[in-house]
Design a protein around this nucleic acid. Structure first.
Lengths: 249, 249
DNA sequence: TATGTTTGTGTCAATATGACGCAAACTAAA
DNA sequence: TTTAGTTTGCGTCATATTGACACAAACATA
């Protein structure tokens, strides 16, 4: 049973992270499986009294993924009364996830700050579960297990925001590996937007932004014609999204 | 000196509202002048322990503007340590704005939830100051007075968000009066975007969205050719911004 | 060597955009 | 009453962008 230094945390406030990854043509979210429970949860944590909220979010994220300097954006504060389910703390005590001392802490009303993170799937080695959970897995966004409290809504909202931010945030840069093929980045865009795009028109447009650099390498080993590998021109990408990539797909 | 039922509020959390209005070709923000001080502040307040955050934001806003059902959007949680200035509570006590009992409450670390509101300037009759202030005024966005703490940054961020949301939120509907001329709505767009637009191209585009209804009335009394008055087709507008108005100006 | 699929590169018509021109409507000055 | 100065309403036109496709080269596998 874990002990929490709750006296060092801001009361009534938590952080929940929606960690997006992209793998096998699908958007994935990193979820924790609560010990002895069927319900899953978003990785989250509390905020040190003497630290910036953004920094705390990064700390929580680093604990879970082992990665530093991850792309992380605050996107919403969830502050409805209904999000605090009465039985939650009781359950945590009964399943011995937390000690009885901690029960009042978990019974108080919580507001939660939603952050979304974009990580390169392959770089997250072994997702590490926290004290409340015994496993940590990537789950496909369109086939999520049952989630505690309002975590499903938090994910939905994060996905919505991601869609809207597609032209303002370096989504590709953070979700794709260093080098990638044209169809990989296209699939990413299709997945986030939830619609298919014409291959040739996509190519024309993404190239017109002048944010990609064609390497002269090819992805070998595939079962068909070897595609060319691209990289981002980070400087140009960063500059381009300042103003937003004109006109969406 | 005012008393606050601080025991009924969530500790360490506040709401700040950036209330936008549009008047005389300018974007305005409603600000409070702190008693006996040169610095101004955003209208804000605290959150009842037993109430949704969104509802509390509405309550605070209604107190200040007298308007119900105002368009109000949460846009950011400000959670840096640096935003809490040490001398602030002391000043409030010294200037007798708050009693000494309240000093610990105002000395704690505060996170603040930023909301922005869009109101029709003319509908706000007499902005009512709160207990910490003795006047309440519309200030032009590009000529703001000195503001307390990080309120200038909060406004800047709200303005940024407004710009980005222009094609996803009913900005015009909420900032303009029921009926308006083509140049009024164009000026609104120009003001929010911070750039001038071609009059004829603007007209063509805004009409192509099919969200405006031409009334057959004209604005009389002007010094030149009487312009035609338009209204929003609220249903079509609402529908159009669901997907976002394709391609910005 | 034949087959199926993916990749790279175009074309072309339909639309949308940006840069203007011009006359009608109206006020205020002459 | 006439004239000058503005604003409004309604166009045009060249250029750029979009959406819908066609086709051949490059592979792996059979």
């Amino acid at each position: 049973m874990a002990e929490l230094p709750i006296e060092t945390y801001l009361p009534g406030l938590s952080i929940d992270c929606v960690i997006f990854g992209f793998h096998e043509m699908e958007l994935k979210v990193l979820l924790l499986n609560m010990k002895n429970q069927e319900e899953w949860a978003l990785p989250g944590g509390f905020i040190q009294k003497d630290q910036d909220v953004d920094i705390e979010a990064n700390r929580i994220l680093e604990n879970r993924t082992g990665l530093k300097n991850i792309f992380l954006q605050q996107f919403h504060l969830f502050g409805d009364l209904t999000r605090n389910k009465a039985g939650h703390a009781k359950k945590l005590v009964e399943t011995k996830i937390i000690s009885d001392d901690l029960r009042p802490w978990f019974e108080q009303r919580f507001l939660s700050i939603g952050y979304y993170a974009l990580v390169e799937y392959s770089k997250v080695q072994v997702p590490t579960p926290d004290f409340t959970s015994d496993s940590c897995e990537w789950c496909s966004l369109n086939n999520l297990p049952k989630l505690i409290m309002d975590h499903q809504q938090i994910i939905d909202r994060a996905h919505q925001v991601l869609k809207k931010e597609l032209n303002y945030q370096p989504i590709g840069l953070n979700l794709l590996p260093q080098q990638f093929t044209m169809s990989e980045i296209q699939t990413l865009y299709e997945t986030v937007l939830g619609k298919t795009l014409d291959r040739r028109n996509f190519r024309r447009k993404i190239l017109s932004y002048d944010i990609l650099v064609a390497t002269n390498k090819q992805r070998k080993g595939g079962t068909h014609r070897a595609p060319m590998l691209y990289e981002f021109d980070e400087e140009k990408y960063t500059q381009a999204i300042q103003e937003g990539l004109k006109s969406l797909f």
